[in-house]
């Protein structure tokens, strides 16, 4: 099978790769580009562990073909912190003990970032429904919701 050349932008960097026509963006990120922060929990879009942001929308990278990334702008967990400065969401997840095993955490962070980028002051209900596509089996979501709400406060203060 011939591979397809793809030129895309990942975490603000120009990236080029070859992928098979039926290869998911998740497989490309993990197996070809070494960006293993996105996790495969199901491969069918049901768990959100592979969430990345594509052109401003959070998507399951397992349900995007690698070939579709051509010309798009992709954000992954590896690009979330600014060097050694954690994003407020990352910081609040640690402070609130919003992770236990941590396998779902990159996906939650990407989804929560997409939320706060568009809605700086979400209600608890808005947070819960926005994050319904990210499964966590450890925390019961309580501390995750608190961390997102707290990060929203920090981000609003930073903007003000």
């Amino acid at each position: 099978m011939a591979s397809l050349p793809v030129s895309t932008t990942i975490n603000s960097d120009d990236v080029e790769y070859l992928c098979h026509a039926d290869e998911s963006l998740l497989d490309v990120l993990r197996d070809r580009l070494g960006l293993m922060g996105a996790k495969e929990g199901c491969g069918t879009g049901d768990c959100g562990a592979c969430s990345v942001i594509m052109d401003g929308r959070v998507v399951c990278s397992c349900l995007v073909l690698g070939a579709e990334a051509e010309g798009r702008n992709i954000e992954t967990i590896e690009g979330m912190a600014d060097g050694n400065t954690l994003h407020p969401l990352q910081q609040k997840f640690i402070e609130h003990a919003a992770l236990q095993c941590g396998i779902c955490t990159p996906g939650f962070l990407m989804a929560a970032k997409a939320l706060l980028d568009t809605n700086p002051d979400p209600s608890e209900e808005e947070i819960r429904f926005w994050l319904a596509g990210n499964l966590c089996r450890c925390t019961g979501y309580d501390k995750i919701v608190r961390a997102v709400a707290d990060a929203a406060i920090v981000m609003r203060e930073e903007r003000a």
């Binding site: 993990r30 960006l35 293993m36 922060g37 996105a38 996790k39 495969e40 992954t76 967990i77 590896e78 979330m80 912190a81 954690l86 969401l89 990352q90 910081q91 997840f93 640690i94 992770l99 941590g102 396998i103 955490t105 990159p106 962070l109």
Partner: peptide, 15 residues
Amino acid sequence: DGVDKVTGRARYGAD
């Protein structure tokens, strides 16, 4: 292990 886990650096079974 917090920073590793929020930056995607923590290595799980498939990583």
